[in-house]
Simulated scan of single mutants.
Amino acid sequence: MQIIKEAIAGTVESSDLMVKIAPASGELEIVIHSEVYKQFGEQIRSVVAQTLEQMAVHEGIVIIEDKGALDCVIRARVQSALLRAADAQHINWEALV
């Protein structure tokens, strides 16, 4: 999946997160801002990285503004932002685990 435009999903309300995605050539960068980074930063990064891998994203920039979201919320927000950023017309539902 190729990121062709900027996209946003989510909110900055409690127990949610906002995902911002933009195209970038040659690299995949994940930036995480979280109130609970010391406790859960590596778990957040792991969920984001797994979701990007499942959706075959290899380059772009992903910025996470976390407010204590659960893994399932992180995954859903990243998937939504990716589908918007790729301007996906045909969705591979099997990739959305």
Rank of each mutant, 00 (worst) to 15 (best):
L52A: 03
A9K: 07
V19A: 05
L70C: 05
Q2L: 14
L82H: 02
S46Q: 14
W93P: 03
A86P: 03
Q43P: 03
E42L: 09
V62W: 02
L28A: 04
E94V: 13
I44F: 01
E42V: 05
Q50H: 12
G26L: 01
V36D: 11
Q54P: 01
H33T: 09
I32F: 00
D87G: 15
S15Y: 15
D66L: 04
I3P: 11
T11Q: 07
I8D: 08
S80L: 09
I21L: 09
A7T: 06
Q54W: 06
C72T: 14
Q50C: 08
V97D: 11
L70V: 08
I30K: 06
V73Q: 03
Q39E: 15
M1I: 11
T51F: 04
R75N: 08
E42N: 09
C72Q: 12
E59Y: 05
A56P: 01
A22W: 02
C72H: 14
D16K: 05
V47A: 11
G10F: 03
N92I: 08
I4F: 05
S46I: 01
Q39R: 12
I91W: 06
Q2N: 15
Q2H: 12
V97S: 14
A88M: 13
S25H: 12
S25T: 15
Q79W: 04
C72F: 15
V62N: 01
L28R: 09
N92P: 10
A76I: 03
Q89M: 10
V19N: 02
I91Q: 03
D71I: 00
E29M: 11
E65C: 08
I32L: 00
R45S: 12
G41W: 03
H58M: 10
V62D: 03
E6T: 13
E53C: 07
S34T: 02
V57N: 06
A56I: 07
A81R: 04
I3R: 10
Y37W: 04
A69C: 03
K67E: 11
V31E: 14
I21G: 04
A88Q: 09
M18K: 15
A95V: 09
K67G: 03
D16P: 06
E59K: 12
I74G: 04
G60W: 05
I91G: 04
L82N: 04
R84H: 10
A95W: 09
I74R: 04
A95S: 12
L70S: 08
Q50I: 09
L17C: 09
V47F: 03
Q79L: 02
Q43F: 07
R84T: 08
V31Q: 13
S34W: 02
L83W: 08
L82T: 02
D87H: 12
